[in-house]
Design a protein around this nucleic acid. Sequence first.
DNA 1: GGGTGCCTTGACAGCGCTGTCATGCTTGCC
DNA 2: GGCAAGCATGACAGCGCTGTCAAGGCACCC
Lengths: 336, 336
Amino acid sequence: MRARIEDVARQAGVSTKTVSRVLNHEPNVREQTRERVLEVVRKLDYRPNPSARSLAANRSFLIALLYDNPSPNYVMEIQGGVLEACDAHQFSMMVRPLDSQAPDFVATVQSLIGQQRPDGLILTPPITDHPELLAHLDQLDLPYATVSSRIQGSIGVTMDETRAAAEITSHLVRLGHRRIAHVIGHPAHGGSELRLAGYRKAMAEAGIDVRSEWVVPGAFSFASGVAAARQLMALDSPPTAIFAANDDMAAGVIWATADAGWRVPQDLSVAGFDDTPISRQVWPAVSTVRQPSRDMGRIAALQLLRRIRHGEPGELVQVPYTLQLRDSTASCKRDA
Amino acid sequence: MRARIEDVARQAGVSTKTVSRVLNHEPNVREQTRERVLEVVRKLDYRPNPSARSLAANRSFLIALLYDNPSPNYVMEIQGGVLEACDAHQFSMMVRPLDSQAPDFVATVQSLIGQQRPDGLILTPPITDHPELLAHLDQLDLPYATVSSRIQGSIGVTMDETRAAAEITSHLVRLGHRRIAHVIGHPAHGGSELRLAGYRKAMAEAGIDVRSEWVVPGAFSFASGVAAARQLMALDSPPTAIFAANDDMAAGVIWATADAGWRVPQDLSVAGFDDTPISRQVWPAVSTVRQPSRDMGRIAALQLLRRIRHGEPGELVQVPYTLQLRDSTASCKRDA
DNA sequence: GGGTGCCTTGACAGCGCTGTCATGCTTGCC
DNA sequence: GGCAAGCATGACAGCGCTGTCAAGGCACCC
């Protein structure tokens, strides 16, 4: 049978409550007592029973990571970061794939909360952009942190997507491109607008008029990249560069151009966003914007835990991005 | 305040124990009583407190999914399947990324078990092939299910990888190829051997002698596919087809050939294994073997739950594969 | 009619922790 | 020296459920 708190208490010559104090880093324990307890804990390899702890403390020590199927790569990275933070704070993590477009979305989340009773939630895009859910959570007074979103008053982690999108667009301009198209992301995803705004900003700064046919809708999927590329290649005066709002779509664009016999980057430059593995696994490798997804997961979880554990307000941390310039972008040949 | 079992019992006019019986599908409850209880449960939207349940029942109602970073795509699929099964049985799932090569691997798992106390484990490759861990789990008498492995006496789910590998190799033979190379998977992964065996079997059946330089080591990564392809292309008489033991490596092979100016499938046919999204996201799309990963996750979890919940032995279920023939394989041109 | 055995139900203890509150001890200060 | 204030610690109840065991009710049989 495994050790219980009572065994530790007896061997250390203190009450169970004192052991509990030591284990939960509560104040007002003499240093000498603390050490004695910790020694017995080590000796017996004592681990508190999480169920008993949760029951008595009326908290689950659990946070839930909610996602709605952006790329598996992205989710796995975030998940890894969140787990890292949870481990460091004796919390556990549960994951929940969801369909944020479903009519019963909020009810589904509500049911999940009712069953598993997490102490807090981590929301990833596009779930971060679901006002009805956020309102519901606020009403329940259930803390949540958002990843990569700029919800007013929210805590979590964010990135300046607009500036990043502008920067990679400017990179294309500097290479000599003028006819630069943009494939928009999924409309339910707040990042789509921000990236589009960045594209427009950079184009405006370069003094280039954006023709309406250069801006085509996408859905963050490989397939939508293929469709967008076909549409753009069919224009009378096709673009010489395409900035897709994520890597999957950029890979789709490259696939479609290869399928049509175009060469990248000679005939067309292609840029993506996110630096997911797929950006390195197509040929040529895609120039893109790297966001530190794993760190973002970790930071979001840490902000949430600060809030849950210590009642601190928590903040919205902005993380840096970096341009990853690879082989899919080059100076403009076709117009030369 | 949320409803407790006592509230349900009072309103239904029964004891708490009877409510407990109904909720846990225990036998010997009169039908009429059961219905009355369930009605009150619905009315009050009662959900048992998982911590109290675990504490009293001395079980965690938790299963742990252990993985060591094969592709994120694969893990996400398995994870989705396992979650599905858990949801259907009121269990929860925790996930755990691990490094199965680390010296303290077994100790890490042990510590995880000690802390979270899962009622069972789901092992995914290559963790399924770690004899020391399996021995340890048997000794602890902690049930586990394996995915895609053929451990004697284990429960879970498997696929006939050897036959699948033989079949896709035969497909290349039928296209007219004779110089067919194979890129082996990661050596710690049991599937690598099985796929290699299938390749050899098909070659033998076709009466083709396998030259030793055609069989090159890989590691299931995109980069290892690139390296293997470069090695094979440098041969005096390079192969006309390459069967890589997974899709990531097949994508790497295609990348390397494009980089070297070879055309697929005109100059070289390439086949993969697994049917992960990457197989459709490179150009040309890769011919591969599809295994129903999500179903496999679900089935493995179901077998494990049968064992945990009902003490049934559980079995090793074999699932079917299908060949996905796409554009990366074609009849042999170079030798014609 | 009475005994046997099964079905159905309930009383109650207790799972292993933490919150509350009380207690004794130390320290600092006038 | 005496008193207030704060620190360190422990006793105890109770979190919400399930396991155990006992008991009552009922059907069925000889």
